[in-house]
Design a protein around this nucleic acid. Sequence first.
DNA 1: GTCTATAATGGGATAGAC
DNA 2: GTCTATCCCATTATAGAC
Lengths: 192, 192
Amino acid sequence: MNVINESPRRKELTRLAAQLFVQEGFDRTTVRMLAQEMGIKSGSLFHHFRDKQEILAAVIEEGTHNALAMARQALVECGPDAESRLRAMARAHLETLLTDRNAHVVALYEWRRLDPEARAHLSHLRDAYEALWEEVIDAALAQGLIHGDRFLVSRFVMGALNWTVRWYDPRGPRTPDDLADELVAMITRHPA
Amino acid sequence: MNVINESPRRKELTRLAAQLFVQEGFDRTTVRMLAQEMGIKSGSLFHHFRDKQEILAAVIEEGTHNALAMARQALVECGPDAESRLRAMARAHLETLLTDRNAHVVALYEWRRLDPEARAHLSHLRDAYEALWEEVIDAALAQGLIHGDRFLVSRFVMGALNWTVRWYDPRGPRTPDDLADELVAMITRHPA
DNA sequence: GTCTATAATGGGATAGAC
DNA sequence: GTCTATCCCATTATAGAC
């Protein structure tokens, strides 16, 4: 079962599950909670998913798939220079994390809860997303926009971005785009 | 019950619990697992802790207390300039996360699992640690070593550091100190 | 301080009717 | 596609003996 041929019921359940997994965490979310959100009984869930693990896998597939699609789109629409591309990636990343605020967060924070088979099945998606980042960061390094080790820079940047989930308050004065721009400014070296 | 007057048994249990909470997560760690690690039966645990929540609170108190102590010590021993102090904080932070690899990680990643009373009781420790960071970052900003918004810079830096837990491999070529130095280099602006 | 035994609860999952 | 009913199991926590 992949992202493309899903029933509408299953799609809606995946959406609700993502929300609960972010709020409560995967382990503390019970099938009964999810069923109640959907307005059905817990037994009925297992018509749509084999088990609770499959719900998690569906959410994470959705979240990663979406992040990848958003990032690709952002790269198509932005300017060709390394800084524009870096900013576009950071903005897209934070939009999926802070605005959408669901499936991608689960993908990042509950990845370890996936069983080995699901992890194997989904790692290509994750790798594709990370490859996009490395490509953009490589270009920024090659151009001297940023300095340092390719591996470390990309992980530090991802860490700074991913951690925003823990403290960002959407009611505050800053938009996700503001955050992305500030981060890029922090690590790039301009002629003033 | 605070960090100072703990029985040796309780101290050892707290240490083992920290290890399990990092490996498995708080929710998936059962009292039976912890008891087995200790070589006792699960019922015996409740002689040392009122309930499972209190175990978590003990681990988090230990982790935050320790991080604060290490950071203070590092600031005493390092050079007086803003860059030395920033590097010292980053090194101390990563040492508690990656070398000790236990209680401080739990403090960061399982804070949300604390019940409200425990959170209220421990937030002063956490605030003291964050105040130390803000002080050092303020100095670096004032001196022009780094640029940007005080609030955002400190959260981006903490995010980059905290996320290392997810990917750092101690068998790799880099030490935690290498990571700290590279991060400081990435965000500071030198005359080349 | 630890044991045995067990209470009390809630969890994931199934079967078969509708 | 959902319901009811229920099974089976693991979990936290307690009581009282040693």
